[in-house]
Simulated assay, not measured.
Amino acid sequence: MAKMTILQAITDGLRVALREDERVLVLGEDVGVNGGVFRATDGLQGEFGPHRVVDTPLAEAGIIGSSVGLAVNGMRPIPEIQFFGFIYPAMEQIVAHAARVRMRSQGRFSCPMVIRAPYGAGIRAPELHGDSPEAFFVHQPGIKVVCPSNPYDAKGLLLAAIDDPDPVLFLEPLRMYRAFREEVPEGRYTVELGKANVVKPGKDVSVFAWGTMLRVALEAAKSAAEKGLDVEVVDLRTLSPLDRETIAASVKKTGRAVVVHEAPKSAGVGAEIASVIQDEAFLYLEAPVMRVAGYDTPQPLFSLEDIYAPDAKRILHGIDKAMNF
């Protein structure tokens, strides 16, 4: 097995899908000749041609609207939104069309498309380049939301998303694109959508995270271990649908929960996870569910970026609050 970064694993997953299924095509701004702004599609147009890896105008609504038409008519489009914060012009196409095709047609049609979008702060990019608006889409029935935290999952979840008969929003942790490598199998394999992963078992408190925040949570768990605390870290991997069973089982074991995300705190996905815990494991709780999140402001620019997103120190503070309640 080759050692890959998250970015390389995504490229490899796209290559596998394009080779195996002629219905698959990639489209977006600069995905072809330039290989994508982060080179996630580097070399794919040269291998598969400009009709399978398609450079589009700067028009997010057009990219997604075209993909809806392609998907309904039997293709498997993979549109790329260059940064997650650029997705707002395409909201109408996603929530009013892609997510509703199956319901609107009473099951006669589906919309098998994967919308790829790098998300999150930490690379000193301009405004709208570091947003994390995943909660908007978790709220919308009819679309799955997936966010890997490592290379193995990135490829496996991407291939599973491409196989799915309905639309999937595939969020790629921008700050982690080239941060580390791990072994990734060659060829096809999938990681089941809707299944969380207990990355680090523990008995004292459960920490739930995804994407970029997963590695930050592991760093906080390491610091907590120096204080004698055994932290369980759960990678949700899929935000919609949530793996309620794994969330509940973890909290029933530890009795305490901390949810971490870099999106704003109010009405974020963390609130839904807290509600799942309330529904499924309330009688096991020894403390309120703690949320460690971004602040209720727009994603700030360079000088405040490091203050905005949760770091290991803030997560450790949340763990301490849960333990000392």
Rank of each mutant, 00 (worst) to 15 (best):
L171R: 01
P126T: 01
I81Y: 09
K200I: 01
P118T: 05
S250F: 12
M213G: 06
R39Y: 09
I78R: 06
A59R: 07
R124A: 13
F170M: 04
E47M: 05
D243R: 05
I94Q: 13
E226W: 00
G194D: 08
L18M: 04
H97E: 15
I94V: 15
A287T: 14
M176C: 05
L58F: 07
L304W: 09
F86C: 08
S223K: 14
K3G: 05
V33Y: 04
R19W: 00
E127D: 02
R178G: 01
L193H: 05
P57H: 01
T212H: 10
V191R: 05
M290H: 11
M1F: 09
I143C: 12
I64R: 13
Q93T: 14
P50I: 00
L25S: 05
L169N: 06
S66Y: 05
I115N: 04
G294L: 03
I315T: 08
P126Q: 03
N324Y: 14
C111S: 15
V184Y: 08
M75C: 08
G268A: 12
G49I: 03
A281F: 15
E305K: 00
M176P: 01
Q93N: 15
I123Y: 01
A121W: 00
P298Y: 01
R291L: 13
V95D: 12
D166C: 06
